[in-house]
Amino acid sequence: MATSLRNQFRVARTSAELTHFRQQAWRLYEPVPSETIEAFGQAWPLRPGLTFTPFANAVRCTAHCAFCSEELQRYDGHQLTAKRLIDDYPAYFARLREVLRPFRGWPLGLSLSGLEATAEPQWLRELLACLTQLEHEGMVFDEKVLYTNGSGFVASPDLGLALQDFGLSRLELSRCHDDEAVNQHIMRFNRNQPMRHNAVYAATVRWLHQHLAVKNSCILTQVGITTLPDVERYLAWAAGLGVRQVVFRELSRLEGSYLPNVFTEWIEQQRVPIEPLLAAAVPTLEAPRAGWQYAGSTFGYYYYNEHYRWQGIEVIFETSSYPALQAATATGVLQKLILHSDGTLSGDWDPDSRVLSRVAAPAPALP
């Protein structure tokens, strides 16, 4: 078993072992021993290799994806960071420097996600400059990933150059279908967003490939990519744009852990489990589908991936469990760090859960 700071990679040697992987998935993840850091007046146990997310929320998102996780609220949840915009950039970046100070020298993964980081180019440029300065001061980001719908690159292509200079490890670009009308039905870009059109998307991807490692991310849905022939058609289309790595994600398994709303209803109605796709690609190691080659499996603390090669493209199928994520968070060991848009640093997507530090309340005015 190969182990990184963030997950564990294994290659099934027999078909029985591969079946076991698929049945147990993330449950086979073996937690690594936690380490302790002194921060904000107390000791915090943390998972080595945890990720840090400065929640991107300077402006409203440029799309309204039907599966948006930022519209989900847990039964024990309090508030949604997505509803609170970053309205004071100097204060925000001062806070960013403050909350990361105790973690200097600790390897962190940097996950640029939340809403749409490219939607406000000024904020993203200032964020990259701030993080770069922190690196000069001892911060260690051993992996840097941007999750994006790509919309901001159309009007501000220089963002790609800024990300290249920053040393971005990869850019995960969301696209849920090779047909722009079907993709729009799922991702629901604002009408003024050119990225909704395939021609604009294709030109953007080709340009980005000159500067960054681009990985396509496709959410599996009943109205979109559903079957393995659908997957192969999408891959052929992506390959024509120069894409060499694609991940197909099952909608995260909620298992009744979130308050019902139109988003949870859509997610459950549209779910496409990955198991039938895995069985169609490689029913057994001895008899894979033509063109498909199993390369291994990744186990995370709340997700499971299977890796393949298909006509020169690396293909990943992923499934994840939000209850497993919440269970890991509930152990008290920090699994991730999120700087919320109100300045709260927490170990949870809920800014009122697993709080490490809040913005100090202003002193009362003198009489």
Rank of each mutant, 00 (worst) to 15 (best):
Q210C: 11
A295C: 08
L128C: 03
I37L: 15
L356H: 05
S353W: 15
C61R: 01
E255C: 01
L128K: 10
P90F: 15
R175L: 12
Y75V: 04
G105E: 00
D158T: 06
L163I: 04
L228Y: 03
G240K: 03
R309A: 12
L5F: 11
L72P: 02
E286T: 07
P45F: 13
T221I: 11
T226P: 01
T264I: 04
A239K: 14
H177P: 09
S111Q: 11
P362K: 04
G312I: 11
E250Q: 12
R170Q: 14
S151N: 08
L212H: 05
V282D: 08
G77H: 00
A58G: 10
V282E: 11
R101H: 14
V246F: 01
F21W: 11
A360K: 12
N261A: 01
Q222P: 04
W349Q: 07
V355P: 00
L334Y: 06
A82G: 13
L161V: 11
A117I: 15
R289H: 08
Y201Q: 01
E120P: 07
G41P: 08
C65W: 08
L110K: 12
F141P: 05
V145A: 05
A16K: 07
V272K: 00
G296Y: 09
G296M: 05
K83S: 15
V214K: 02
H136K: 13
S169E: 09
Q222D: 15
L85V: 03
C61Y: 01
V182T: 15
L285Q: 07
E71P: 06
Q23V: 01
R170F: 13
N190T: 09
L259R: 08
Q42F: 06
P362W: 08
E314P: 02
A94F: 04
T132A: 10
A117Y: 15
P194A: 10
L334R: 04
D178R: 10
L134I: 07
S320L: 05
G41Q: 09
L259Y: 12
H136E: 14
L251F: 02
R47K: 15
E126N: 06
A287K: 09
L277D: 05
H211C: 08
Q73W: 07
D87Q: 14
A365D: 10
Q73D: 08
R244F: 04
Q42G: 09
L72N: 00
F40Q: 06
T3S: 13
H185Q: 07
L241M: 13
Y234I: 01
A25V: 03
P54S: 04
D142E: 12
Y322D: 06
Y147A: 12
S156V: 12
R22P: 05
Q311V: 00
A238I: 06
R22E: 05
S346I: 03
L325Q: 09
G347D: 12
L334F: 13
G242E: 02
T264Y: 11
W44G: 04
A203S: 13
S341Q: 02
L278R: 12
P229A: 08
N190L: 06
D350H: 11
Q133D: 15
D350C: 02
T284E: 10
P121S: 14
G343D: 08
N183F: 01
L339D: 09
W266C: 03
Q122A: 13
V315L: 05
